[in-house]
Each structure stands twice: as structure tokens, then as C-alpha cells.
Write a protein that binds this DNA or RNA. Structure first.
Lengths: 229, 229
DNA sequence: GAAAATATGACAAATACATGACATCGGTGT
DNA sequence: ACACCGATGTCATGTATTTGTCATATTTTC
């Protein structure tokens, strides 16, 4: 699961810190800004996937910043959650009109924060609809998350599934173990290259005699998925 | 999923606009009317599947319109959600008596609106459009709101019913816990993902040995309803 | 045949899921 | 107002699967 980046904009360092801790525990990457001025200055750095904005801040208020962000092309699509103190609830409509995607009233529990954040992100990132791939009666269907051989289901583990999916969408091409680790496991995990061999073996076993030949060893290099030879 | 049409009746253009945007993002088709007079004028155009009605409007008030709609044959079956300002909560009973199906207090989040709208549509979709689904002797009939196994009724809770209904109308497809929460619980509730596991278990228990196998675990992903394997 | 590379079987630790128990909440009847 | 009830969400614990690594076999290359 790729961890998302959240930008917190709040003038109170203690609040920021509290939120940051909660989010980091939930495995989010956190950026902080203490006011509206410094907030949008992220041309170079990593772009956040979501912005947590305090309503009440000196200088440009949260709601103004929200409007500004929604107007700008680059940030218009970025989900915004507004934080407001209790009793300011009437601002809710105003805030949502300004383009905020959700609205949390202080005080809130870290749990609630994380839950709503997750929900907003979920909506903002619609899962891509992927097509099924089929080769010589071997079919991998992302929708049902299933692999079938001429209609009958195959027993296959999660990692082997991802491996096969990668291969079927990148046929006729040799990949080194290192490349496979990057593509299938994800770039920032450390595992032995030999581990790839083991999963290749498990994948071949799952595919059975019928389809084994599709997973080919490229000696001295790595592996390849190919219908030829 | 066929997109539904929602008619918004409110005298405030800004409110209408806000709601319209929220609904369109949620993939609904939107019609607008600014008062009770123009509202019923839909003899020709597309019929809405649901009406969002502001309580307070000049001229004919929302509640009066609601009553009128409920009296008329053509619109009697149409679900109505009333929008009311905060503090008018006492009107709730009155509103529901007038035939409204739900009741939302301003201010509300788009998420909340969409969720309740979805809930109302789910529950109030005119009988006849929702067909019973049957799979291997397991039958779910929305009309009678009943689940039967080869004719004999099964004991099943509300949440499990909705879960099963979703699954039976979306077979052969893997869903993450997150997606199930969105689809079955509604986007505006914040519950633990693990909670899905518990309801899956309850559903399986209700289904009994005979049909348990239909609810399949997809390791590392979520769950799936499938007649195969 | 020796060296290098890959295949394979076995394991222990890490993960993910299943299950039972429990607290809470809204609704009902007393 | 009160106790009761079913429905729900959460947690702690039990169980099963998955995963990365090794040690050891087997194959390929020269």
C-alpha cells in the first residue's frame, strides 16, 4: 500500500504536532505549514495527496486558502478537509461551498481523523478499472481477482498473482530479479534477489504443467513471460 | 449502475448549485426547480427518482409540496428527502408524517447527503424494479425483504442482508473492505475495516453450510461472491 | 568435469483472516 | 423511568496462510 502524503496547515505548532503524530502512526507521510503564506510554496517538494486546513488562522484564513487552492489548476483536484473549532458549525456550508471535501469539528479523536481522511482519499482516488488478460487459455481477471485455466480456477498466492499480472501485461520481455522486485514488490522493500526465484517457482507450480512454459528462465539475466519457444 | 435522477427544489440558487455539484460528482443526474410552482412541471421531461425538498420556501412550503406529491398517483411512490435549517428539528415528525422518507438538517456535508440519498434510494426504490436474485437455491427478494434457501426463510440481520444483496448483484468480483464499506455501509460512516470481517462471518453463519461457499475470502484483498470453485 | 546459475524443499516469522465475547445504542414494552 | 432486546462495531485471541531465507539438489555452460 503506497503511503499518501498529507499537508497540515495550522498556525498552532502543538496542534500540528498532535495531528502529525496521529497520521504518522497511521502510516501517512506528513508535511507541515504554519500559515497560508508558506502553504502553497510547494512547487519543488513532494505534492501532498490531501490537505488538512485549519479554519481559523491569522492572515489568510483557511477558507480563503481553500478557495484559492480550488481555483488553481494544479491544486483544484486536491481534496481538502477543514478543521474547525466547535461552535463554528454554521460555517460548515460556507466551507463546503469553498470546495472542501469534508469537515471535522474540534475536538476530534485521531481515530476519527484518520478514518475520514481515509474515506476522502478513497473517493478521490477511484480505482482504475483493469481489463482481464488472456493467453493460451490462461486468464487473469483483476475484477474477480482470479486466475483461470480454460475456465477452471487456479490456486495462487497474492505475490504470485501480482507477479503473474505483471508478466502478462509485460510479455515477451526479460526482466532482471532487481527489476521484478521493483515492479512487483515495490521499490522500497529489501528482499534477497534469490527470493524472486522462489516465487517464480511457486508461480510455475500454480500454473501447472499446462502453462509453466510461459514463465521462462533467461539465464544470466532473469525471467520472461513468452508464448513462443 | 444506472445513474439516478434527483430533483432539487430550493429557492436559493447558491444552495441548489452546491447540492447539484455534490450530486453530479457522485454520478447522479440533477434537475433543479426554484419553487413549488415550477416543480411539478415535469410531465414531459425525465422523471426524477428522488426529490430533495427545502422545507422553507416562499409560496408553497416544502412540506405542502411533499403532501401534494404524495397524494398524486404518479408521484406517490417517489421518495422525498426534506432539507431543513438547524433548529427546526421539531418539524421532523411533521415532515415524516407528510410522507418524507428522510430528513437532513443543514448544514450537512455532501458526503452525508449522498450517503443518505443512496440509502433512501436503496430502501425506497419502487417495487418491481428490484428483481429477486437467485443463486443455487439461495434467493434474495427485495420486495418481501427476505432471504430463502430452497424456500425456507433464513435468519439474517439488516446489515448482512444489505451485504448479501450487494454481493448477489455484483457477483464474480473481488471487493476490498474499503469498497464494501462505501457500497454497503455508505460513504459517510467511519467504521474499522476489520468490522467487515465480522459481518462477513455473520453473513456466512446466516447462510449456513449450504451456501457459505458463495462468500469467498480473497486473501490480501477482500471478499467475493462467486458460484464457482 | 568444474564452475556458475537456477530449481527445489523445508522452515520460522510475519501477516491476514476467523471467531467469540463484550460494550453500546436505539427502540419497545412494562 | 426502567429493564430488555436485537443490531452493531470493536477488541482480544485463535488459526491458517503467506513470505523471505537457507541449505541442498540440479541444470547449464565452457
Amino acid at each position: 500500500m503506497s503511503s499518501k502524503t498529507v499537508l497540515i496547515v495550522d498556525d498552532e505548532p502543538s496542534i500540528r504536532e498532535m495531528i502529525a503524530v496521529a497520521l504518522e502512526m497511521a502510516d501517512y507521510h506528513v508535511l507541515e505549514a504554519d500559515n497560508a503564506q508558506s502553504a502553497p510554496r510547494h512547487g519543488a517538494g513532494p505534492q501532498p495527496d490531501l490537505i488538512l486546513l485549519d479554519w481559523m488562522m491569522p492572515g489568510t484564513s483557511g477558507i480563503e486558502l481553500a478557495r484559492r487552492l480550488k481555483r488553481e489548476e494544479a491544486t483544484a483536484e486536491m481534496p481538502i478537509i477543514l478543521l474547525t473549532a466547535k461552535g463554528e458549525e454554521d460555517n460548515k456550508v460556507q466551507g463546503l461551498e469553498a470546495g472542501a471535501d469534508d469537515y471535522i469539528t474540534k475536538p476530534f479523536s485521531p481515530r476519527e481523523l484518520v478514518a475520514r481522511l481515509k474515506a476522502v482519499l478513497r473517493r478521490a482516488t477511484p480505482p482504475g478499472i483493469e481489463e482481464a488478460v488472456e493467453v493460451e487459455g490462461l486468464k487473469l481477471d483483476p475484477a474477480s481477482h482470479r486466475v483461470t485455466s480454460h475456465g477452471s480456477a487456479l490456486e495462487i498466492g497474492p505475490t504470485e498473482y501480482r507477479l503473474l499480472q505483471f508478466f502478462m501485461t509485460h510479455q515477451e520481455r526479460a526482466y532482471t530479479r532487481s527489476q521484478l522486485l521493483d515492479q512487483v514488490w515495490g521499490g522500497n522493500v529489501y528482499v534477497e534477489e534469490r527470493t524472486v526465484d522462489v516465487h517464480i517457482r511457486r508461480l510455475r507450480k500454480s500454473l501447472g504443467e499446462t502453462h509453466q512454459h510461459l514463465i521462462q528462465t533467461v539465464r544470466g539475466t532473469g525471467y520472461r513471460f513468452s508464448i513462443r519457444e
